[in-house]
Each structure stands twice: as structure tokens, then as C-alpha cells.
């Protein structure tokens, strides 16, 4: 039985395979509409989410399956003190596959220790969010046609931004990518990612605090939100939250084929005026999330069209 707890659980070949299936789903959706008939996906969201939960549910419904679950801890037995392990043991009796989001880091690993059905980590605190990474990879692949030879900028909260950490480690498997990390000093990429991934694999990267300076060199720009929920100190959040705001003026210096991504939700970091720019691809990115999750559900259930 396979789980997806961390993007590193998948080999490069498996990621490529998921992207190939997702692109085939986009091209031929009718081929997949009954693949999961009579199968049930449980979405256990111990923490609120809009996109991730709905995209999982839409993915299962588009595969012809059914969904059940809860969307916040207060509507589950967690509010009565039930452990993650007990919840999972019970739900394994009701569903064929489980997607779970939990505010505590490592909760999906605890779930996987007792589960008899595949577990998908749909986000565990500031730790991992592998299906967002798969979404980002599918989007990059659809926009560029490959994962090689481009410059990608990551801008905003690179310290707590789990989507950034996972995407960097996933892209590190490919060649010819130059990474530009744009952040204030307090929200720089953690040292262990620089040591264990970038330096260890001799990857090309730079760190800067100026989005304007980096902009002309970028082929892809991955914007992130400064997340209020990751700060213990509200004053630090308020001081840092509007450090970078992408607006049409800043985009004047960008390449005409720049591709702007954002895991969403955004707050102020991308001006709404940018939404109509053809280089803004973040809503297409969100839609891609459904297709890659369809491919993933099929893979973990061992089903093919």
C-alpha cells in the first residue's frame, strides 16, 4: 500500500508518470469518468481549507467516485479528544483512500502507522503539502513543456512557506534550473534546505531582497503569502506582510513570457490588476490541482483508465 506524505515519497519517474496521466485527463476527461466507480474518498480536514478540499472532492467526483468527510476539527471527534490514530482506524473502515489536512506537523505520518488504506497528506501545518507541489509541477510542465533550463524566482515568505520548500526539493531533481530566492532577511529560506539540497547538489542559486532587481531575469515567478498563522508574534507579521506587492508597474521589467504562479489564497502580495495579465497563471494553476489529484488517486488505488 502506498501513501503520499512527502513529495520525496515519489521517484522522478513516478512524478513524470503522474504528469503524463494528468495531461491525458485534461485532453480526454471522458476516458476517466468511471475509473473510481464505487470507490470512496474520505477528506479529513482538521484545519479549514477551500481549494485543497474542494479540488480533492472534485477530483474524486470526476473519476466517478464518492466522497465523505469533515471540513473542520470541531465537527469531528477530535473536539472530544480523539487521537489522530483512532480517527484514522475508524475511517479506514468506511473509505478506500484518505486525504487529510491537520495543523500538527507529522500527523499524516502518525496516521500512516495505523492506516489500512492509502493516506494522502493534504497539508500538515508548516511542514509538507505534496499535492500542492504536484500541482505546481504540472503547471510548470504545461507552461514550459519541460522542467529544464529556466530561471525561477521564489518571492515572499521563504522561511515558513512549505510550498516553496517542497517545490525546491522537487525541482532540484532536474537540470539547468537557476533559483532566485527573494525575501526579507527574517523570512529567508531555511539553512538546512540550502545545505542539504542546494549546496549538496551543487545547484545554481542566489538570494536577494529586491524583487525589482531580480525581475528581468525570471522565466517563472512563484509568489507566496506571508502567513499570519505561522507567526507567534503578531507585530512581526504586521511588519513583514506587505514587503512585496506584485503590481503592473513591477511587471514592466519582466519578460513577455514570464509565468506568475501562486499557491493561493493571496492577500495583498499580488495586486488584482495583475489578474488580467496573460502572464498571471495562478488560477489555471489552481485548476491543475484537480487534474493531478485525479492522477494521484488513481495511482494510489492502483487503477487505470
Amino acid at each position: 500500500m502506498r501513501n503520499l506524505l512527502n513529495i520525496t515519497d515519489l521517484t522522478t519517474g513516478e512524478i513524470d508518470e503522474l504528469i503524463t496521466v494528468a495531461e491525458d485527463i485534461i485532453a480526454n476527461p471522458e476516458k476517466y469518468q468511471d475509473v473510481c466507480r464505487r470507490k470512496k474518498l474520505a477528506t479529513l480536514f482538521f484545519e479549514p481549507s477551500t481549494r485543497t478540499r474542494l479540488s480533492f472532492e472534485a477530483a474524486m467526483l470526476d473519476l466517478g467516485g464518492n466522497v465523505l468527510g469533515f471540513s473542520e476539527a470541531s465537527s469531528s471527534s477530535t473536539s472530544k479528544g480523539e487521537t489522530v490514530g483512532d480517527t484514522i482506524r475508524v475511517v479506514c473502515g468506511y473509505a478506500d483512500i484518505i486525504a487529510m489536512r491537520h495543523p500538527k506537523e507529522g500527523a499524516p505520518y502518525a496516521a500512516a502507522q495505523v492506516a489500512t488504506k492509502p493516506i494522502i497528506n493534504a497539508g500538515d501545518g508548516g511542514h509538507n503539502h505534496p499535492t500542492q507541489t504536484l500541482t505546481d509541477l504540472l503547471t510548470i510542465h504545461r507552461e514550459r513543456g519541460s522542467f529544464e533550463n529556466f530561471t525561477i524566482g521564489f518571492c515572499g515568505d521563504l522561511k515558513f512557506g512549505r510550498t516553496v520548500h517542497s517545490l525546491v526539493s522537487a525541482l532540484a531533481r532536474y537540470t539547468g534550473i537557476h533559483f532566485v530566492f527573494i525575501s526579507p532577511e527574517e523570512l529567508k529560506l531555511p539553512r538546512y534546505i540550502i545545505d542539504n539540497t542546494l549546496d549538496k547538489q551543487h545547484l545554481s542559486y542566489e538570494e536577494t531582497n529586491s524583487l525589482e532587481e531580480a525581475m528581468p531575469r525570471l522565466d517563472m515567478l512563484y509568489m507566496t503569502r506571508v502567513q499570519r498563522e505561522r507567526f507567534f508574534n503578531e507585530a512581526d507579521y504586521i511588519r513583514l506582510k506587505d514587503t512585496y506587492i506584485l503590481d503592473p508597474e513591477k511587471l514592466e521589467a519582466a519578460k513577455p513570457d514570464l509565468c506568475i504562479l501562486h499557491p493561493l489564497p493571496r492577500v495583498n502580495e499580488i495586486s488584482v490588476e495583475v489578474d488580467n495579465d496573460p502572464r498571471a497563471r495562478y488560477f489555471a494553476q489552481a485548476e491543475n490541482g484537480k487534474f493531478i489529484r485525479m492522477a494521484l488517486i488513481m495511482k494510489l488505488l492502483g487503477l487505470k483508465a
Binding site: 487521537t83 500538527k104 507529522g106 500527523a107 502518525a110 500538515d124 501545518g125 511542514h127 542539504n196
Partner: peptide
């Protein structure tokens, strides 16, 4: 020691550490 780790809020869980370097 991570206050956000599930093993802190559910201390009955088996602690596991892996040699990574």
C-alpha cells in the same frame, strides 16, 4: 522539541528519529 509536532500534542506516539546526516 518542535511544539508544532504531533508527537508533542499526542505524547503516546512512538518517537522515531532517522539519521539524515
Amino acid at each position: 522539541k518542535n511544539p508544532r509536532c504531533i508527537t508533542v500534542s499526542e505524547p503516546h506516539l512512538r518517537s522515531e528519529f532517522l539519521l539524515t546526516d
